[in-house]
Design a protein around this nucleic acid. Structure first.
Length: 577
RNA sequence: GCGCUCUUAGCUCAGCUGGAUAGAGCAUCGGUUUUCUAAACCGAGGGUCGGAGGUUCGAAUCCUCCAGAGCGCGCCA
C-alpha cells in the first residue's frame, strides 16, 4: 500500500467534486500535484502542494486556496485528525491513530509483497550484465556492474516482472587468439620446460593461465601439444571453457547466477552477423568509407582505410562505425549488432545493458543500431557503472592489468565476504565513482553500513527470541486496535516511504536507493531502541517479561521491511551477531 | 577538438523524479552500558549546493553558457 498514492487520489477526488460544484477551476493536467512527508519539525503526517499548484488558474493566493481545500479535505475524510496550512501554501495533514494501525495491519497481512509495485504493467526484461571477456578471472571493476545488474534483476522480480539474466561471451576475435596462444605457451612451459615469453605484450601473463594449462593437460594426457596449428581450434574451445568455469565460479561467490550465456562465436558461425549486416545494407545504413583520426589527438601513424561502415551518425552518433576489419573479419561492434538483433527477435519488452565506465562511449552506437533494426531505441536501456577506487589503509590501491596482478573478485570475497561486497558496492549511485575501503569494510562499526542494518534485524530477532516467538512465523493477531507514540509513528512514516523507494529504484534502475533507505530506517530504529535505556516503558519487553501486541506488530513491520530490502540486495539478515 | 559522466560541509556522499530552515557518515570536541545485543545512542561546531544567466509562485534538482575532474574517441573486445 502506497499511502501517498492513495492520498493523492483522495485529494484529486475532492478537487473534482469541488470543480463540479463550480467552486474550483482545475488545470488541464494534475500531474504536478504531490503528496509527501513534511519535514519532521512540522509534526504532520502528509503534506500536499495542491493549493500552490492551482492558485494561478483560480486567481487566488495559495494561502486562501489552501484554507478552502483543507476544509473540503477534512470533511471528506474521517481519518484526518487535524489539518493546517503553512506558508507558502502547503496543506499539512495529521491522521488519527487508527490510520497508522490500519497501515501496519496492511504490512503484516502482506508481509511478502509489501512495497512491491504490483499495479504496473508486467514487462518481460532481458538484462545483460558482466559480459567480461572469457580470458581470465573477474576483477573488482567487473564486480560493481555484476552486483548492479543482479540487484536490478531482483528488484524487477520483486515487482513481478519477468527477467532473463544474460552474459554475452566474447569468444571471437584477436584477443581470443592471443589468449589461446598464452595458454599454449603455458602448456609448453609445463611439458617442454620452455620459459613463458613474458615480454610479448600481446600475451596474457597472469598466473591463472598455469592452472588452465595444467587442467587442459590433465583432461587429455595423450594429446600432442607440439604443433600449435594442429590443435589451435580445439585449444581455443578448451581455454574458453576454463575461463568460463573460473568466471562462473567468481559470479557464484558474488551470489550471481545468469540464465543464459550467449556465444559471440556462434553468432558468427550461424551467419547471424552476416545476415544483420545484409539487412542493414539493404536498408541503406551501410557504406564503404574511411574513418578520420580524432581531432586533437596525435594522428601520427594514422592510416585511413576503406572499411564497411554503419551510418550511426544518422542516429546522433558522432562518427560512423566500422563493421568489418580490412582482413574481412567482423569487428566487435558488428557481432554485437547481431547480438542485439538476436535479443530483439526474442521479443522482450525491454533490453537492459549494464556497462562499465570505459564502455560508456559505446552506448550511442549500439542504441543507433537498435534504432536502425527496430525503428526505435526506446526498448534499450543502458546503465553505466562507474569506476571503483580501492583504498587500503587510507591509500589508493592500484589495479594494473599489465602483469595480470589486478585485484580479483576472489581476492575481494576472501577478504571482505560476499555480503559486505554487495552492500558496499550499492552504497552509491552507480554513475558516481565509488571508494571501496578495504579497511573500513572489514570493521564492525557504524563505518560499515552492512553491519549497521544487519544489527537492527538482529536486535529485533533477539526480542522475539526472549519471548519465545519465531520471527519468521506470521503473527496470529486478529484485533488491530493500537495507539502508537510519536516516535513510533516517525518510524512508521519512514516505512510508508518504502513503496515509493521501490518504485523510484525500479523505474530509474537505481538500487542504491534501497541501501540508503535501509540505512536510514535502521538508524531510526537504533535511535528508538536506545530510548529504552532511560525509559522502561519504551522497551519492547516489559517487566513481566512479556511483549504487548502493539510492540510485537511494530517490530514485525520493521523487521519485515529490512528483510525484504536485504533480500533484494541479496545479503543475509542474521538473527544473532 | 568531440562525446559521455560528475562537481553539495574539512573528507566520502544522500537528497524521495521542482517544494518548507539543504541532510547522513567519517573526522574534531563532549556525554550515555547493574537495563530487550554499546557492532548502539545523545549533543556541539561545520554550507555562496563549481560559476553566471534563464524558466517557475518556488531550483541543489529543469534549460543555456562557462570553468574544473574522470572515462572514452580507427581493424581491443
Amino acid at each position: 500500500m502506497n499511502i501517498f498514492e492513495q492520498y493523492l487520489s483522495k485529494i484529486k477526488k475532492t478537487l473534482l467534486d469541488l470543480s463540479k460544484k463550480n467552486e474550483l477551476i482545475l488545470s488541464d493536467n494534475l500531474d504536478g500535484i504531490n503528496a509527501e512527508i513534511p519535514p519532521s519539525e512540522f509534526n504532520y503526517d502528509i503534506s500536499t502542494n495542491v493549493a500552490m499548484f492551482l492558485s494561478k488558474v483560480n486567481k487566488k493566493s495559495p494561502m486562501d486556496l489552501a484554507e478552502k481545500l483543507a476544509r473540503a479535505l477534512k470533511e471528506n475524510d474521517k481519518l484526518i485528525d487535524n489539518i493546517s496550512i503553512a506558508k507558502p501554501g502547503f496543506i499539512n495533514i495529521k491522521f488519527k491513530s487508527i490510520f497508522w494501525t490500519m497501515f501496519i495491519e496492511e504490512i503484516i497481512k502482506n508481509s511478502k509483497t509489501f512495497g512491491a509495485n504490483l499495479k504496473e504493467k508486467k514487462n518481460d526484461y532481458l538484462i545483460e550484465f558482466v559480459s567480461a571477456n572469457p580470458t581470465g578471472p573477474l576483477h573488482v571493476g567487473h564486480s560493481r556492474g555484476a552486483i548492479l545488474g543482479d540487484v536490478i534483476a531482483n528488484l524487477l522480480l520483486f515487482n513481478k516482472h519477468k527477467v532473463t539474466k544474460e552474459y554475452y561471451v566474447n569468444d571471437y576475435g584477436n584477443q581470443i587468439i592471443n589468449f589461446t596462444k598464452s595458454v599454449y605457451f603455458r602448456i609448453r612451459e609445463i611439458i617442454f620446460n620452455e620459459p613463458f615469453p613474458i615480454d610479448n605484450p600481446n600475451l596474457y601473463p597472469g598466473d591463472y593461465l598455469i592452472n588452465f594449462a595444467q587442467n587442459i593437460i590433465n583432461s587429455d594426457k595423450k594429446k600432442d601439444f607440439k604443433n600449435f596449428e594442429k590443435i589451435s581450434e580445439e585449444l581455443t574451445v578448451l581455454s574458453i571453457e576454463q575461463a568460463l568455469i573460473l568466471i562462473k565460479d567468481n559470479l557464484n561467490s558474488l551470489g550471481i547466477k545468469h540464465d543464459n550465456f550467449i556465444s559471440e562465436k556462434k553468432l558468427v558461425i550461424n551467419q547471424e552477423v552476416k545476415k544483420v549486416v545484409d539487412y542493414l545494407q539493404k536498408n541503406k545504413f551501410v557504406y564503404k568509407g574511411k574513418i578520420k583520426a580524432p581531432a586533437g589527438e596525435n594522428a601520427d601513424g594514422w592510416i585511413e582505410r576503406e572499411q564497411l561502415l554503419f551510418k550511426s551518425t544518422d542516429f546522433g552518433d558522432d562518427k560512423d562505425r566500422a563493421l568489418q576489419k580490412s582482413d574481412g573479419s567482423w569487428t566487435y561492434f558488428a557481432s554485437d549488432v547481431a547480438y542485439h538483433k538476436n535479443k530483439l527477435d526474442r521479443k522482450f519488452d525491454y533490453l537492459i545493458n549494464i556497462l562499465g565506465a570505459d564502455h560508456a562511449g559505446y552506448i550511442k552506437r549500439i542504441s543507433s543500431s537498435v534504432e536502425a533494426l527496430s525503428g526505435s531505441n526506446k526498448k534499450l536501456i543502458c546503465k553505466v557503472s562507474q569506476l571503483v577506487k580501492l583504498i587500503k589503509n587510507n591509500k589508493p590501491f592500484k589495479m594494473s592489468k599489465r602483469k595480470g596482478d589486478y585485484i580479483t573478485v576472489e581476492d575481494l570475497i576472501s577478504e571482505v565476504g560476499k555480503d559486505a561486497t554487495r552492500f558496499i558496492m550499492l552504497n552509491r549511485n552507480s554513475d558516481v565513482e565509488l571508494d571501496f575501503d578495504f579497511t573500513k569494510v572489514k570493521e564492525k562499526s557504524k563505518d560499515n553500513s552492512l553491519y549497521y542494518v544487519q544489527y537492527c534485524y538482529a536486535r529485533i530477532s533477539s526480542v522475539f527470541r526472549h519471548v519465545n516467538l519465531d520471527i519468521n512465523k506470521d503473527l496470529s493477531i486478529n484485533k488491530y486496535d493500537f495507539k502508537y507514540s510519536d516516535t513510533e509513528i516517525r518510524i512508521l512514516k519512514k516505512i510508508s516511504e518504502w513503496p515509493k523507494c521501490i518504485e523510484i529504484s525500479s523505474s530509474k534502475l537505481e538500487p542504491h536507493r534501497i541501501v540508503i533507505f535501509l540505512y536510514d530506517l535502521a538508524s531510526e530504529f537504533h535511535s528508538y531502541w536506545n530510548l529504552g535505556k532511560d525509559d522502561e516503558s519504551k522497551r519492547f519487553i516489559n517487566n513481566k517479561k512479556k511483549i504487548t501486541d502493539d510492540k510485537l506488530v511494530f517490530l514485525k513491520a520493521v523487521s519485515n521491511v529490512i528483510k525484504t530490502g536485504m533480500k533484494i540486495v541479496g545479503v543475509d539478515t542474521p538473527y544473532k551477531m
